[in-house]
Nucleic acid binder design. Structure first.
Lengths: 122, 122
DNA sequence: CTTAAATAGTACCTTTTGGTTTCATAAATC
DNA sequence: GATTTATGAAACCAAAAGGTACTATTTAAG
């Protein structure tokens, strides 16, 4: 079956490759950091000012984001510039896009239901 | 600034709404379960046969997936049918799609390649 | 009615996670 | 050269996560 082939492909190779990204994305603070860095690359100190935790805790989050290839760090003198790596989100996006085929089905059904409801209300 | 408005919108409301989904997605076993259920809805026993952990552990994963609204559970006699809820992935997909704009800015060529690849797979 | 099957739930254990505090190091700056 | 300044890293801690074993409950089946 085609579905089994797809399943193998995603559950074996892709499942492992995505782990770093999905792990990094599971924490709300880390997602907040990604949002921040999407506006501007920043030093650790800069990032820390936006959160109510210590700089050391922020550093740990940045390490995990870097491990997941969601950011990159560049030395500049004694500072370290943290930069968003949007391409790192690709593995997670790809994995989720596999399900598009299913929620496209659901969505069309839902859309129909919404339209029916609107017609009843009017 | 527009970027600040967008940031607020995503970091406050959406960030919280997506937590259940992203948390559920962070574990490879749970992503495997989602893949399984994408092919066919199954009982807990059926799901358990695909993994090398106890039924109780699988049940915990299913609970977390249900909390994240990624699956739904339907009683049928003494069995519980676990069904994929693809729409539950929408919050996570939406959050990630915010970053599409940065792909566009910096990596439009690469994004095109990704889309082409997706088209070839479908 | 009794028994087997499918699941729920709890107690318990170990590892991971998110956080802190403290100390060390490297680079500007005075 | 001495002193801030920005960061790295280790030790430690409480809570959450992922797992097991065991017990209870509900429902099919004989």
């Amino acid at each position: 079956m085609i579905s089994e082939i797809q399943s193998d492909k995603l559950s074996n190779s892709n499942l492992i490759e995505t782990q770093g990204a999905f792990r990094a994305l599971s924490d709300p603070t880390r997602r907040g950091i990604l949002m921040l860095l999407s506006e501007q690359e920043m030093t650790i100190g800069d990032v820390s000012e936006h959160f109510d935790i210590t700089r050391a805790a922020v550093k740990k989050h940045l390490n995990i984001l870097e491990e997941g290839a969601l950011i990159s760090v560049h030395a500049s003198g004694r500072e370290r510039i943290n930069r968003l790596e949007p391409l790192g989100l690709k593995s997670a996006v790809d994995w989720l896009n596999y399900f598009n085929q299913f929620w496209d089905e659901k969505l069309s059904a839902l859309q129909q239901a919404v339209e029916d409801e609107q017609n009843n209300q009017n």
